[in-house]
C-alpha cells in the first residue's frame, strides 16, 4: 500500500500505520504525497499546513485521506475521514477503506489486495477441514468466532492467528463455498455489538472456552 504521512514520528500516526499494516499488509511510506493512494494527516499537535488541502484538491485521482485529530470540528476538508486519536478500534480502518470508493483495480495497483473478505464482515456456514492448518492452532478460535457471528478480517488477525494461516484458511473456505460475505451495513452491527448484546454463557461454556485457551498456550507450535 502506497501511503504518505504528514508527520512520520507522531505517535498517533505510528499507531494508525501499525493498525493499517495489520489489516492490509506492508505499507510503503512514500516521500511524495502526489504518488500515494492513501494519506495519513496528523492533526493532533496542531492543524496541518493549508497547502495540503490545495495539493489534495489538485490530485488526480484524489487519495483517500485519514485525518487523525482530537476534534472533528478541526477536520480540514469535508472529504477526509476523521479518526479520533489515538485510534482504539482498528475495525474503523477496515470500514473506511471499504467505503472509500476505491475500485478493486486500483486497490491491486496499490498493493492493497483484492480478496473480498478483507473488506467485508463475513461468517462461516460450517467448519472447514482444518487438517492443513495444524501449524497454527489459533486458526481454530478464528473459525469458532466466524461460526458464532459476523466478523471482520482485522478482528481475526487481532485474535493471535498468523496472517498467512488466516489468508489460506479464508481462501480455502471461500473456494469450498463455506464463507459468506455480508453487506457492509451489517458491519456497523458487528462493530457496535457490545458485550451486553451477547447472551450470557453458562459456566460450562465458560469452562470449555477456558480450556481452549489453556490448551492453545500449551500446544501452540509457535
Amino acid at each position: 500500500m502506497k501511503v504518505w504521512v504528514s508527520a512520520r514520528q507522531a505517535p498517533a500516526t505510528d499507531g494508525f500505520l501499525h493498525a493499517l499494516g495489520q489489516l492490509a499488509g506492508d505499507c510503503a511510506v512514500l516521500e511524495r504525497a502526489a504518488e500515494a493512494t492513501l494519506w495519513v494527516v496528523d492533526g493532533v499537535d496542531g492543524k496541518p499546513d493549508a497547502s495540503l488541502r490545495t495539493l489534495y484538491e489538485q490530485a488526480t485521482p484524489r487519495p483517500a485521506v485519514a485525518y487523525l485529530g482530537r476534534w472533528m470540528s478541526d477536520l480540514p476538508h469535508p472529504a477526509w475521514a476523521f479518526f479520533k486519536a489515538p485510534l482504539t478500534d482498528p475495525k474503523l480502518i477496515s470500514l473506511w477503506l471499504h467505503s472509500a470508493n476505491v475500485q478493486p483495480g486500483s486497490r491491486a495497483d496499490a498493493g492493497l489486495g483484492t480478496e473480498p473478505w478483507r473488506w467485508q464482515p463475513m461468517r462461516l456456514s460450517a467448519w472447514p477441514n482444518l487438517a492443513r492448518f495444524r501449524r497454527d492452532l489459533h486458526v481454530i478460535t478464528a473459525c469458532a468466532q466466524l461460526l458464532r457471528a459476523p466478523t471482520l478480517y482485522s478482528d481475526l488477525i487481532a485474535r493471535g492467528a498468523q496472517r498467512d494461516a488466516i489468508d489460506a484458511l479464508l481462501a480455502d473456505a471461500w473456494a469450498a463455498g463455506l464463507l459468506q460475505l455480508l453487506p457492509v451495513p451489517a458491519a456497523a452491527g458487528v462493530a457496535a455489538a457490545p458485550a451486553t448484546a451477547k447472551p450470557a454463557e453458562s459456566p460450562t461454556e465458560n469452562a470449555r472456552r477456558g480450556l481452549v485457551s489453556r490448551l492453545l498456550a500449551r500446544f501452540s507450535l509457535r
Binding site: L130, A131, R134, L137, I140, T141, C143, R148, R208, V212
Partner: peptide, 17 residues
C-alpha cells in the same frame, strides 16, 4: 500424531454450543 489429536480435541471444545 499428537498435533492432529490436539487439533481434533480443540475443535470439539471450540465449536459453538
Amino acid at each position: 500424531d499428537q498435533t492432529s489429536v490436539v487439533q481434533a480435541t480443540l475443535i470439539a471444545l471450540a465449536t459453538p454450543y
